[in-house]
C-alpha cells in the first residue's frame, strides 16, 4: 500500500509534465487543425530560458541587488520564462506556419519538424555540447507520511501544474479571448465575419501553449536538473501521444490523458524491468487507441467546415 502511494505521487508528477505539454499540442490542433511538431522543442527552449532567468535572478540575489527569498525567485522564474517562451511560440507560428496556412497539412508538419531541429541544433551551437545544471531554487525536504516519502518539490510541481490548468480553464471559459478560441475551434472559417482577427487568436493560442510548455520545462528541470538539447524530443513525443489519447483539440482530454500516461508509465515501471517499461506502456496506449481511435474526447469526424 505504501508502495502504491509512492508510485501514485510519482505518477502525478510525470502526469503534470505530460499534461502541461499536451495542452499546447491540443489547443493548436483545436483551432488550426495542425500538429505543431516543434512543440516538444519549445518545452526544451522553455527549460533553457528558465535556466537563464533562474541563474540571473539567483546571481542578482547573491550580489545583494535583489533581496528575494528563494520561493519568490522560483515564482518569478516560472512567470518570466512563460512570458518569454510565449514569444518563441508566436514566432514559430508567424514564420513557420502562417505562410503555409493554405498549403497541404503535410507541408506544415514537415516545417514543424524542421523548426524543431533548428531549435535543438541552435541550442547546441549557442551553448555547446555539455549539459547544463539547473540552479536549485528550493531546498529539498522529504516528508515521511506513514512510510510514504514525499518531497516538497513533488508537491510543488503537482500544485503549480494544477493551478496553471485551472487558470487556463478559467481563461478559456470566461474571457472574450477564450470565447474566441472556443469559437475558432468549432468553425474557424467564419471567425473573421465576427470582426475577430484570426491571426491574433492563432498567435494567442501558440503563446498560451508555449507558456505552459515553458512551465513544464522549468518544473521538469527542478525535478531533474540536468538539461540537454534533446529533452524536447523524447518527452515532447510522449506528450503528443497524450494529446492524441485525450482527443485532438480537447483541453480536458489533454489533461486527463497526460496524467493517465504518467500513471501507466510509472505503474508499469513499478512491476517491470525498466528496459521494457515504455514498450509495454505504449503498447497499452496503442491498444486504447485501437478501441477509441478518436481518443477520449475527440470528435468522431474532425473534418472542419469549409467555405
Amino acid at each position: 500500500m505504501q508502495l502504491f502511494f509512492q508510485n501514485l505521487i510519482n505518477a502525478l508528477q510525470w502526469g503534470s509534465f505530460y499534461a502541461l505539454i499536451a495542452l499546447g499540442y491540443s489547443m493548436v490542433y483545436g483551432i488550426l487543425m495542425l500538429f505543431n511538431f516543434a512543440h516538444g522543442d519549445i518545452f526544451m527552449v522553455g527549460a533553457y530560458i528558465g535556466f537563464g532567468v533562474a541563474t540571473g535572478l539567483t546571481a542578482l540575489a547573491a550580489m545583494g541587488a535583489l533581496a528575494l527569498p528563494n520561493w519568490v525567485i522560483l515564482v518569478l522564474t516560472i512567470l518570466i520564462s512563460m512570458f518569454l517562451t510565449s514569444f518563441v511560440g508566436m514566432l514559430v507560428e508567424r514564420i513557420g506556419y502562417r505562410p503555409l496556412r493554405e498549403a497541404p497539412r503535410a507541408s506544415a508538419a514537415i516545417t514543424g519538424l524542421m523548426i524543431g531541429i533548428i531549435l535543438e541544433t541552435g541550442n547546441l551551437a549557442i551553448l555547446g555540447a555539455q549539459r547544463i545544471r539547473f540552479p536549485s531554487l528550493i531546498k529539498s525536504t522529504t516528508y515521511d507520511l506513514g512510510g510514504v516519502f514525499v518531497t516538497n518539490k513533488k508537491i510543488m510541481i503537482v500544485v503549480v501544474s494544477l493551478v496553471l490548468m485551472l487558470a487556463l480553464n478559467e481563461f478559456i471559459r470566461r474571457t472574450r479571448w477564450g470565447m474566441a478560441m472556443r469559437a475558432m475551434a468549432f468553425d474557424y472559417v467564419v471567425i473573421p465575419l465576427m470582426g475577430v482577427p484570426l491571426n491574433t487568436i492563432a498567435s494567442l493560442t501558440f503563446a498560451l501553449g508555449s507558456g505552459l510548455a515553458a512551465a513544464a520545462g522549468i518544473l521538469f528541470a527542478i525535478a531533474y536538473p540536468v538539461l540537454d538539447p534533446y529533452i524536447g524530443i523524447i518527452y515532447g513525443w510522449k506528450a503528443f501521444v497524450a494529446a492524441i489519447l485525450g482527443g485532438r483539440g480537447s483541453i480536458k482530454g489533454a489533461c486527463l490523458a497526460g496524467f493517465l500516461l504518467g500513471f501507466i508509465e510509472i505503474f508499469v515501471g513499478a512491476y517491470m524491468p525498466s528496459t521494457v517499461r515504455d514498450l509495454i506502456a505504449y503498447s497499452i496506449i496503442l491498444l486504447i487507441l485501437v478501441f477509441r481511435p478518436h481518443g477520449f474526447f475527440g470528435e468522431p469526424h474532425s473534418a472542419k467546415l469549409r467555405l
Binding site: 469559437a183 468549432f186 470582426g195
Partner: peptide, 22 residues
C-alpha cells in the same frame, strides 16, 4: 453566411457577444 454557421458549442449570448469582439 450560407447555412448560418453559428458556433454551436457557444450559448446564444456568447454568439452575440463574440460578434462584438472588436
Amino acid at each position: 453566411p450560407e447555412g448560418r454557421r453559428l458556433f454551436g458549442n457557444l450559448t446564444v449570448m456568447e454568439n452575440l457577444k463574440l460578434a462584438t469582439f472588436a
